[in-house]
């Protein structure tokens, strides 16, 4: 079953098109990373999918419900961590959570139980009676995530969940996100932390008003950079680059100081021939390793491509 399905989803504010023709299918139990620069329309997309604002055209279904005709059901089936935690400062952590749990239709007893569960999970139990106004940024963020999960929604939207958290707290949040996936929940993760997206996401969507690319992190890398190996030499790499480029199985070579970056059709098959050619040319090879570009490199490449193709910012 698909957790989220969009078909030509579009949102326009007067003459400004914030989201254009978004086609998206996210299977249930997936962590989906929604990446894009500031002002790309990510928040507008999330708001449409949470039935907070209506699309100008197109359709979307979240957790099986139509965002326009079954808005209340969509809101009940989704949890959202907004850009700012949006907590009531004068209320305690427990009061904040029980208030929202009751709004989501939980009984007083269920609300208290769920609130206690998440306060313990996020290590806020000892501070449950303290006003939230005195909490650190990390504590507030954890409490806001707890609020998004209280009613056990099948689809959870998290906007920069680890922003402002210390490394330990960020690790705890990432572990919780993985646990949620293991429990079958779908996570729609909006983040600028590409290392985090790389670690967590099964599927990545790169977005800038339009969906630029949608694939697994591995496929995105392969599509852009193919399969590459990094050859570290004892001496300068540049003189060897023309020789390597002439090899029939090499599609691209770049050299930087002592490193050759070689793009191959099939590294398992061609690496021995590459090594033989380099040794025959007198190269001293220190070691050779598969090259995996960071998601950041992939992301920047895709955004740059989109700017070049569309000619817009």
């Amino acid at each position: 079953m698909n957790a989220i399905e969009c078909h030509r989803l579009t949102r326009q504010f007067d003459r400004l098109v914030a989201v254009a023709d978004l086609d998206l299918v996210i299977p249930a139990g997936t962590i989906f990373g929604f990446l894009g620069p500031n002002g790309a329309g990510k928040t507008t997309t999330v708001r449409m999918l949470c039935a907070l604002i209506a699309p100008s055209s197109g359709t979307a279904r979240v957790a099986g419900f139509d965002v326009q005709t079954q808005a209340a059901a969509v809101r009940a089936a989704t949890g959202i961590l907004t850009e700012t935690p949006g907590l009531y400062d004068t209320l305690s952590a427990l009061e904040n959570l029980t208030f929202f749990a009751r709004l989501y239709g939980l009984s007083a007893m269920q609300a208290a139980e769920r609130a206690a569960h998440y306060l313990r999970l996020f290590e806020l139990w000892e501070r449950r009676h303290d006003p939230v106004g005195g909490f650190s940024k990390g504590m507030r963020q954890k409490l806001a995530i707890a609020r998004a999960l209280l009613h056990d929604p099948p689809v959870v939207f998290l906007d920069e969940p680890t922003a402002g958290l210390d490394p330990a707290a960020a690790r705890a949040v990432r572990d919780v996100i993985k646990t949620l996936r293991a429990g079958g929940r779908t996570i729609f993760l909006t983040t600028h932390n590409l290392a985090e997206a790389d670690e967590l996401c099964d599927l990545i969507g790169v977005f800038r008003t339009r969906l630029i690319s949608l694939d697994t992190p591995a496929n995105l890398r392969a599509r852009l950079f193919g399969q590459s190996v990094r050859v570290v030499l004892a001496g300068p790499a540049a003189p060897l680059a023309p020789l390597v480029q002439r090899l029939p199985f090499v599609s691209e070579v770049s050299a930087e100081e002592r490193v050759l970056l070689v793009r191959l059709a099939n590294p398992d098959q061609h690496n021995p021939a590459l090594v033989r050619a380099l040794v025959a040319a007198g190269a001293d090879i220190c070691y050779l390793e598969p090259f995996t570009p960071s998601l950041e490199t992939v992301y920047l490449e895709l955004i740059q491509e989109a700017v070049t193709v569309n000619g817009s910012g």
Partner: peptide, 8 residues
């Protein structure tokens, strides 16, 4: 307001 309005 946004978290409040996100509730059903």
């Amino acid at each position: 307001l946004e978290p409040l309005l996100a509730a059903p």
